[in-house]
């Protein structure tokens, strides 16, 4: 089953709003936030209505030099079973090293060494998962000094070697382009869009001369404008705090649907 149409990141704070969206195509839930004993009832209700639920991992650290934790992989596999997910997703990033948690997704050096480390971890993960995995390149405020590959090349190498799907975040594309002084549309060249499972979109803002992918601000027009170039089968809005009113979220979802060429769903 492939994802279609408009999706919304399910968060407890807006669970009722998400459940009430009439044309909802799918939702995503932070995999680590799912209680192991069972689904919160609002999510179980969505599953019973045949709304696809995608567990979205944020703590596996697939790009870490150390082998991915078998326990964390098992929990992601459990989350896939529990939600009846068509696929799961995670990031091309690392979140811990040397016994310290960073508390956020950190970028990898775009080197062959990092390709090999990430590929090994994605393979270990895929071996335990009951469903396919889509991998998302992240937004970062800095690059490593010794990059050998462009971001599109780096991601393509990892996806091809692991036969994983692509989760492309157009807000991350925008953020990285702005912060590297590049034209966002031109940085869309070379991405393996034939592997695209779905697209993320989120809000952010300029601060201190840099674009911050905050997930707590409205989606800028320039980010919406990237959707037509990608022609995604499915788009999911991520909002992670400072929640606006329901009416404002609906307007944002309508604008996303219009930019992606979907029928209005709200």
């Amino acid at each position: 089953m492939s994802l279609q149409g408009l999706g919304m990141g399910w968060r407890p704070e807006i669970a009722g709003f998400v459940a009430g969206l009439p044309g909802l195509g799918f939702v995503e839930v932070i995999a680590e936030s799912l209680p192991p004993q069972g689904l919160p009832w609002t999510l179980a209700d969505l599953r019973d209505r045949d709304v696809a639920i995608v567990p979205h991992g944020v703590r596996l650290s697939l790009g870490g030099a150390e082998p991915v934790s078998a326990k964390r992989v098992a929990r992601l596999a459990d989350a896939a079973e529990l939600t009846g997910a068509p696929l799961v997703s995670e990031h091309i990033a690392f979140v811990r090293a040397g016994g310290l948690e960073a508390g956020h997704l950190l970028p990898l050096p775009r080197s062959w060494e990092a390709v090999h480390a990430t590929v090994a971890n994605v393979r270990r993960t895929k071996d335990e998962l009951p469903v396919p995995i889509a991998l998302e390149p992240i937004a970062a405020l800095f690059d490593w000094p010794d990059d050998e590959l462009t971001e599109a090349q780096f991601v393509t190498e990892i996806l091809e070697r692991t036969d994983a799907l692509l989760l492309l975040d157009v807000a991350n594309i925008y953020a990285n382009a702005i912060n590297r002084n590049l034209d966002p549309v031109s940085t869309l060249d070379g991405w393996p869009l034939e592997r695209l499972a779905y697209v993320h979109i989120a809000g952010g803002r300029m601060s201190g001369g840099l674009y911050h992918d905050t997930h707590t601000d409205p989606v800028p027009r320039a980010v919406l404008d990237l959707l037509p170039a990608v022609k995604p089968p499915a788009v999911l809005l991520e909002r992670d705090g400072d929640y606006p009113t329901g009416a404002e979220l609906l307007a944002e979802l309508d604008a996303i649907a219009a930019a992606a060429g979907f029928e209005e769903v709200t």
Binding site: G64, A65, E66, F94, R96, A97, G98, G99, L100, E101, A102, G103, L106, P109, S111, E113, A114, A117, L141, F142, D143, W144, P145, D146, G208, L210
Partner: peptide
């Protein structure tokens, strides 16, 4: 790679020194 990742995380969250070659301003941000 493991040592470099550990050095970077130490710099970002534990007051560790700036790793060589990085843009100090961006790591500060």
């Amino acid at each position: 790679l493991a040592e470099r990742q550990a050095e970077l995380v130490r710099c970002l969250v534990a007051g560790g020194p700036m790793p060589d070659g990085f843009d100090a301003e961006r790591l500060g941000a």
